[in-house]
Design a protein around this nucleic acid. Structure first.
Lengths: 129, 129
DNA sequence: CGGGATCCACCGTGATACTG
DNA sequence: CAGTATCACGGTGGATCCCG
């Protein structure tokens, strides 16, 4: 418990960081996007999200469920059946995310150009050795 | 409810993920927030962002500079002086971030309550062993 | 003052195998 | 079908020392 002084609190952005930490990981955004058009089963999600492993889909869904962004409905049948869906809270998040998506859409070219220029400069600079 | 248009497999999510990867790391958001009220020097940023190491401030600033979100101005004087500021692109990002911040502000209590309930349930379930 | 270089601990992620 | 368990790996971030 006495971890030597964690990174101290930081004001209002702290919460935004926490949120970003939740949806900013490798898979959450894809899961949320796939659930934006309705309830889906585990396997359907796995099939639609290219490259995700069984484990990471489970881990991601658990995290989103924990924060009330995704709901999980289990049917005690054989074989097992589990449905996942966005909660009302999850759908409000969708709105915030689409704002970021729009920003990304609008500026992706500018960013990539800037990045390429930066990398070229660094490369040229390194060549001075 | 007026959720934004459903977005399925669109590459848009990839770009949004890339953006989240940029600002969703541990420190970028704090750096951006601190630069929102004007140009600042390295040491000033380090002083204002509680808990950040010299290394991580450098790394974070380089990343933001690479993507054209932050500008870096070096003065060849002794002792060295370097100014950092948000670029116009960086300031447009500020808008998107404040949207997420608002979302976090509005729902942080709900999320924390849900999270606490979830953890309690898991705890009780584990106690069944 | 504003870094760069190095070493290291942690943990998020992936691959694989097993299960109710 | 929908997971859990285990191991291995790489990247992120922290601590420290040094330099122009």
């Amino acid at each position: 418990m006495d971890t030597p002084a964690p990174y101290g609190h930081t004001p209002a952005n702290c919460r935004a960081r926490e949120i970003l930490g939740r949806i900013g990981d490798k898979w959450s955004l894809y899961v949320i996007a796939q659930l934006s058009d309705g309830t889906k089963r585990f396997t359907a999600l796995k099939r639609e999200i290219d490259g995700i492993s069984q484990r990471m889909l489970t881990v991601t869904l658990r995290g989103l469920e924990r924060d009330g962004i995704v709901s999980r409905t289990m049917y005690p049948v054989m074989p097992p059946r589990v449905d996942y869906a966005l909660t009302p809270l999850g759908r409000t998040l969708l709105e915030a995310v689409s704002f970021l998506t729009s920003w990304a859409e609008e500026h992706v070219e500018e960013i990539e150009a800037t990045r390429a220029r930066y990398d070229t400069r660094v490369e040229e600079f390194s060549a001075l050795d």
